[in-house]
Nucleic acid binder design. Structure first.
Length: 584
RNA sequence: GCGCCCGUAGCUCAGCCGGAUAGAGCACUUGAUUCCUAAUCAAGGGGUCGCAGGUUCGAGUCCUGCCGGGCGCGCCA
């Protein structure tokens, strides 16, 4: 049960009762009424704003409405106390039995607790990573990869039919540069002295084995031939090799995609022409000349008449060109075709996860999706801000000019995929992220991965100890769901139960807002409440989880621990992180 | 010059669809270890929510204008 949804239903029912009784006018719009856990514990278990948001419609003072509502709610068995507070909040306190019943419910449900069919099988397309196939992934890519993957997991968990996609930009000038770079390494592998890698080509060592592999496959046949002869072959070979690298990197991070969509294939299949024709048919393409960007010095600018997409009709700041002067498509044109492809495959909910450097591209892509779907599809773009890599507080030098990026693989090898994944989700996607290689492996309170994992490990430890006192079969969550929980009466125990019961609300909120980081924060709160309780057991033996003298109480406490373990494990699973059983 | 994102405690950051006395960790001070992992926990001080207006019962949250930082601005992707 989502306690807050349940209470909202109860309150809506009581408001309707008040309307029927004539206390309130009929036909009130209850859309703005909400029930939430209050920030202040002193305000009870749940707070409702109904009286405040209905006051205007009902032409009544908030406190009057609140008093009427409170009088009705007091009659309900599961509600221990109702108070009207502040400007007209209705604060509810639920009975301990109510909370204990929710704990039993959690245990009976097990791993799926909080999973609600919000999506009703609605298809959602999540596109993430989509790094150019010109080299291995670096740490910046990791953030988008993890955010996209976790978001996809979350949506899937909540009943959406998710497809995970990677757009392979294998059609532009960059892959031609890649091909030339590989050709240089190929000549090197064939025994030619190539000296320094020429300016403008990719100098990375990772292309050496690609050149060697090409030489091994094709021998010397591409050596003394003009570029136009070898470029397509070498390019195809190189792209395949780069995508193998990328897939290996993603695999190391535990990130997977359902579909890799090739830009080159999209062009080859004529899908870009189709998209262009469709926009043209809707009168959204015209010949025109763009204004040069103001204030940006650009000596090469010359006015040029070209085909423009009327993006301004859909909220963009400028109309956008679709063809380069050499007649080939712009990146935007092929991306329009790709998004049209998604819509035609039945998706009307599109999510793209991009790096911060693409922020200026959001409006035009949203405009394009509106245009090509007849306003029927929506695009949500999650922009991931920079990852600032530190080592013990000092920045790790990452110079784009020198081509010195820290590779995703190096970081995963050093701290492990679970640490990378969790840390990447401890910030909102649109806030910059500090990633300190030293700190994230420390075993201390300020390392959130450790803190949450330690809570899980402690829970496992107590359950192992518990099995020495009571039969192991009795510790299965389904069995614990049926026991007497009435000995859970300490404030810290009930506080932990309440926080566990917020899980369905957290999941639903994170899903609808497309914000997986909320889960990371909730897991840290749960871990905190649990560590507190654990330490209280040091002072007060009655709160110890395992007590051989009192098997019944032990069972009740282990039920609480088992529920915590279920929720933490579930949250970590959504993040693609393995919960640890022990830390030694 | 224009667009997007950000600005909350000394530092790193939460803050849900506009709700009550703005929260957490770190750092600092003090305290807790026979006993389920003290790898933890408790207490204390610390704020003009960048600035100024506006909207309303109520603004960190919405609107406008400034200030500061990041990203980007036709034939790169």
């Amino acid at each position: 049960m989502n306690v807050f949804s349940y209470l909202l239903g109860v309150i809506q029912g009581e408001i309707e009762n008040l309307s029927s009784a004539g206390t309130l006018p009929a036909g009130l719009d209850l859309g703005a009424v909400s029930v939430e856990p209050p920030r202040e514990a002193a305000h009870g278990d749940a707070a409702c704003n109904a009286a405040l948001v209905l006051a205007r419609q009902a032409r009544r003072k908030p406190r009057e409405i609140a008093d009427s509502l409170a009088a009705r709610l007091e009659e309900r068995a599961e509600i221990r106390a109702v108070e009207v507070a502040g400007p007209g909040f209705v604060n509810l306190r639920l009975t301990d039995d109510f909370w204990r019943a929710r704990l039993a419910e959690l245990l009976a449900t097990g791993a799926g607790y909080g999973a609600e069919n919000l999506g009703q099988g609605r298809p959602v397309n999540v596109e993430y990573v989509s790094a150019n196939p010109t080299g291995p992934l670096h740490v910046g890519h990791a953030r988008g990869a993890v955010v996209g993957d976790a978001l996809a997991n979350l949506l899937q968990h909540m009943g959406f039919a998710v497809t995970r996609e990677y757009y392979v930009n294998d059609a532009g000038a960059q892959v031609d540069t890649l091909a030339r770079s590989v050709h240089a390494r190929y000549r090197e592998a064939c025994g030619e002295a190539i000296g320094a890698i020429p300016e403008g080509l990719y100098p990375g060592d990772y292309l050496v084995p690609v050149g060697e592999a090409l030489a091994a496959r094709d021998g010397r046949r591409w050596l003394d031939r003009p570029e136009e002869d070898w470029l397509p072959e070498v390019r195809a070979f190189a792209i395949e090799a780069m995508m193998d690298l990328v897939r290996a990197d993603l695999d190391a991070l535990g990130v997977r995609h359902d579909l890799f969509r090739s830009e080159r294939a999209l062009v080859g299949e004529g899908r870009v022409d189709d998209a262009y024709a469709a926009l043209e048919a809707d009168g959204l393409i015209y010949r025109g000349v763009l204004e040069p960007p103001k204030g940006k010095r650009d000596v090469d600018w010359e006015p040029r008449e070209q085909s423009l997409f009327r993006a301004t009709a859909f909220g963009d700041d400028s109309d956008r060109p679709l063809r380069k002067s050499d007649g080939t498509w712009t990146y935007f044109a092929t991306d329009i075709a790709y998004h049209r492809d998604k819509v035609e495959r039945g998706f009307s909910d599109l999510i793209d996860v991009w790096g911060a450097d693409h922020g200026g591209y959001v409006k035009r892509m949203k405009a394009a999706v509106s245009a090509l779907s007849g306003e029927g599809a929506t695009l949500d773009v999650k922009i991931c801000q920079m990852v600032k890599l530190l080592d013990g507080g000092t920045p790790v030098a990452m110079s784009k000019r020198a081509g010195r990026f820290v590779m995703l693989r190096e970081v995963v090898d050093e701290v492990g995929k679970d640490v990378v994944r969790f840390i990447m989700l401890t910030r909102r996607n649109d806030a910059p992220l500090e990633f300190d290689l030293r700190r994230v492996t420390e075993q201390s309170r300020d390392n959130p991965v450790f803190y949450v994992q330690y809570a899980h490990a402690r829970a496992c430890s107590a359950l192992r100890r518990g099995a020495e006192v009571v039969p192991e079969a009795a510790l299965a969550p389904a069995a614990l769901a049926g026991i007497d929980l009435s000995s859970l009466e300490d404030a810290a125990e009930l506080d932990l139960i309440r926080r566990l019961c917020q899980w369905p609300k957290v999941l639903a909120g994170a899903t609808l807002a497309h914000e997986p980081h909320r889960i990371a924060f909730h897991l840290q709160e749960l871990a905190g409440a649990f560590h507190l309780l654990w330490t209280r057991g040091k002072d007060d033996p009655r709160l110890r989880f395992v007590d051989a003298e009192r098997p019944a109480k032990t069972l009740a406490r282990l039920a609480l621990i088992s529920a915590l373990k279920i929720v933490i494990a579930e949250g970590l699973a959504l993040f693609g992180v393995e919960p640890v059983q022990e830390m030694r």
